Simulated assay, not measured.
Amino acid sequence: MFILKRQDVDIRTMHHPRKDQQIPILSYQGQTFRLLSVFTAAQEDDARALWRDLTDNRGKACVLLEEPERFSIWGKIRLEQADHDTGGDTGTPPAASVFITACLLMLQVLYMDVEDLLGGKQARQFEGDIAKVFTAWKFPQVATPDAVKKLLTIDPLAMSQLPPWQDHHLHRLLEEMHRMGKDYFGNANFADRALEALEDLSSNEQAQFRTWLQQSPAGKIWV
């Protein structure tokens, strides 16, 4: 529908009527859009491909927003729709539970390796670093240090409820985990160990997740 620059639009946040969180709203020429997906600057081709698929093949009214550090896709809504929406924080369903579980398993192994190999001080720094990622990219249900600690320590297979993260949250998490792993360990050897955590899943679930990883630009850096 539109390819826009940051100066072309107004972006603000509004409080979700049923959840304790803010949701971003983009306004352009009297039309209103909600965030659907976020890509890094290096993922321009993927962002444009998804935007074209949504607009040309699925008939969605979408904006592709170009910024220096990222690309984002926004879907058109009516404000009253946003006010009464009971879905996820961007109007998109959560990712498949097996994908959320798998990413949490990888995150926990990375955290445990930092603690075991580098010590408690570095583990606490890791907690702070991943909390900044959650805040910067508006991950639902991780607004407090206790919530972050829970995700780092409680087996996701035993969680009564997984966080309602969407695919774009998982893509961001995979990218940031890989970047942080290289920062902490100085190489990418941590990746194989993190992927070993997937052995807690069934064979079918492992196959589903690995296929998803291979199809995702953020996932390809892991396999």
Rank of each mutant, 00 (worst) to 15 (best):
I77K: 09
R48F: 06
Q43C: 06
L35V: 06
R70H: 11
V63D: 03
L35W: 04
R34N: 11
E67P: 01
D83C: 05
E127I: 13
L118I: 00
A131C: 00
L110M: 12
L36W: 09
V63M: 04
V142C: 09
C62S: 14
P68D: 10
R124K: 15
K76F: 01
P68V: 02
V38R: 15
G128L: 00
K121V: 11
K138T: 05
F134Q: 03
P93A: 11
W51S: 15
C103P: 01
F99H: 12
F99E: 11
D53V: 09
Q125T: 08
G128P: 01
L35H: 13
G75V: 10
D53T: 13
G128D: 05
D53L: 12
L50K: 14
T101N: 03
T55V: 14
K60C: 08
A143W: 06
K138I: 03
G30R: 15
G91Y: 13
A47W: 03
D56Q: 15
Y111E: 06
G128K: 01
T55N: 12
L104R: 04
L36P: 01
G59T: 02
L54V: 01
Q108A: 02
R124H: 13
W51E: 13
R58P: 00
Q108G: 04
G30K: 15
Y111R: 04
R58G: 00
D113F: 02
E80M: 10
L65Q: 06
L36Q: 10
V109G: 06
L64D: 02
I73P: 05
Q81W: 09
P140S: 03
N57E: 10
V133I: 13
F71T: 00
Q31P: 01
R52K: 15
L118E: 04
D129G: 00
L118W: 03
T32F: 15
N57M: 09
A95H: 06
P68G: 10
A82C: 07
A61P: 02
A102Q: 05
K60P: 01
A47N: 04
T144V: 07
F134L: 05
T144D: 05
A123N: 03
Q125H: 08
R124N: 14
M106F: 05
W51Q: 13
R52H: 14
A102E: 02
A123H: 02
D116F: 03
Q81T: 11
D85A: 13
V38D: 11
M112W: 12
A61V: 07
Q31F: 07
Y111M: 05
P93L: 08
